[in-house]
Amino acid sequence: MKGLLKFRTNPTIAATGVVVGPLEKKSPFKPLFDKVYDDERSGQPTNEKGHSKLVEDACMIALRKAGFVPDDADFLLIGDLVNQMTPSNFCASELQIPYVGMFSACATSISSLLTAALLTESGMSACSIAGASSQHNAVERQFRYPVEYGSQKPETAQWTVTAAGVAAVTPNQAGFPAIVSGTIGRVIDLGVTDPFNMGAAMAPAAADTLERHLNGHGRKVKHYDTIITGDLGKIGFEIYQKLIAKKKIETTNNLRDAGAEFFGDDSDFQAGASGTGCSAAIYFSDVYEKMMVGEYKRVLLIATGSLLSPLSFQQGDTIPCIAHAVELEMK
């Protein structure tokens, strides 16, 4: 099977940083976030500048917690959803860490983490910052309508979060979650065209990557304390579970979805949260904490992304989707 990664040196996540916007105060995970802004634009004049500030703060927090300054970091591997990823680019310009922009839409949290682990494994990185971010207003205006435009969102719609989550990846250190393996996803497109039902578009990609990861690495679902998908949302998560059952994968009750859980049961957010920052914020706060305190020993993170553009959607194309997986273990 192709696309499988096994790490012999087990790079670790030495620290994480998660910064969110004001609305994300409604999240039950709020106490676990490092910083919460009261202003949607993080005190900046535009949404895009605020977006940039958000991820910059997250990077600084992760570096500080790991005992580094920006000059110590070898690589910056971050991405977002805005055209040409300018928020990440401007953040990289501020931090002056050698930078590669990462794009897997909402699966960027994992594609960047895997890339950081590979660089670390190769011995060329003592500290890499990997992560992803999104800002509601900046993303919404690009993919859908102006923020104040009145359109009725269906129950399948998901709310793009304002959040940035990054991890500082270092060579193996005892006492931190280690990156032991991963699976690079294939683009799966089962013909969904509704941009207000992203969960349904992404669910097959998540199920495919899960199956390939389990078969490729010889794992069973019960090997993990939790398998947590990125932002399928409540409806996509249900479809994903049906797909797994159809694939005859034996499941336990250890499946979670960051998007479905992000805002709890608040129906203001329809099917839940989405956005590049959604999975990153939950993985690098809740999941990371639970590993640090020993509640989770082994977890599988599967971040999902819809690789559409406003143009491809308007031209009537379907929504191609991807899911990348990474296995973390507390040794």
């Binding site: 399948t156 089962l190 013909g191 969904v192 039902n197 349904a200 669910a203 097959p204 409806i235 249900e238 479809i239 049906k242 797909l243 159809k246």
Partner: peptide, 14 residues
Amino acid sequence: MDEKKYAELESKIS
């Protein structure tokens, strides 16, 4: 899975 089958499953749940 093929697209048609998936559309059925998806519309049953959405």
